[in-house]
């Protein structure tokens, strides 16, 4: 009897733990896919990026800051994800909110970022996006619409998450 109770308890605990894990690497689909607000921002090398330049490609747009602990936690996985997605033509942009190159550049020595870091120094671009806390990340479909959102950090190189992004690429790319 005791053995049965212990086994059932372990089984339930295992199921519960598995259930709590399943939600941690997912993206929220956005109903009706509203158009993503356009922007024109400078990157760390002085180049200019317009969201419209990426029309026809899936783009992951991440809003972050160096002092934000969950942003720091997810950046390495974003970098690994970019290495896997870049060859598929999927773009990734990190929009820094309210900081200058002088702050971001030394930060990247500890947290390498191989994809473009864009500077929204006065926060005016972030203001126009549906962002209430950072990090918040959006996946933009090839038609420039917001397809997915993630509030808080994710493990971006998680296979389940990568599959969702790639499926969007395949679905929307002729």
């Amino acid at each position: 009897m005791i053995r049965t109770v212990v086994l059932l308890t372990l089984l339930l605990a295992g199921l519960s733990a598995a259930a709590s894990q399943t939600g941690t690497h997912l993206l929220t689909p956005i109903p009706d896919r509203p158009a993503a607000p356009g922007f024109e921002l400078r990157d760390m090398d002085g180049g200019t990026h317009r969201l419209s330049d990426y029309r026809g490609r899936v783009v992951i747009v991440n809003f972050w800051a160096t002092w934000c602990p969950p942003c720091r936690r997810e950046l390495p996985s974003m970098n690994r994800a970019w290495a896997k997605l870049n060859d598929d033509g999927i773009a990734m942009l990190a929009v820094n909110v309210g900081e200058t190159e002088d702050v971001i550049f030394p930060f990247t020595a500890d947290y390498p970022i191989d994809f473009p870091v864009l500077l929204d120094e006065d926060g005016s671009v972030t203001e126009r996006w549906p962002v209430r806390g950072i990090p918040t990340t959006f996946v933009i479909d090839p038609e420039g619409r917001i397809a997915y959102r993630a509030i808080g950090g994710r493990e971006w190189d998680d296979p389940q998450l990568l599959a969702a992004v790639r499926a969007l690429h395949r679905t929307d790319t002729p």
Binding site: T28, A65, C68, P70, G98, G123, G133, A150, G153, R154
Partner: peptide, 24 residues
């Protein structure tokens, strides 16, 4: 003020059951 705005917890937020969370 911009640093304060983003370092503080959102006054209004909706967390979906897909791993959503905020610090602040």
């Amino acid at each position: 003020r911009l640093a304060f705005r983003w370092a503080t917890f959102p006054s209004v937020q909706t967390f979906e059951p897909r791993g959503d969370y905020n610090w602040g």
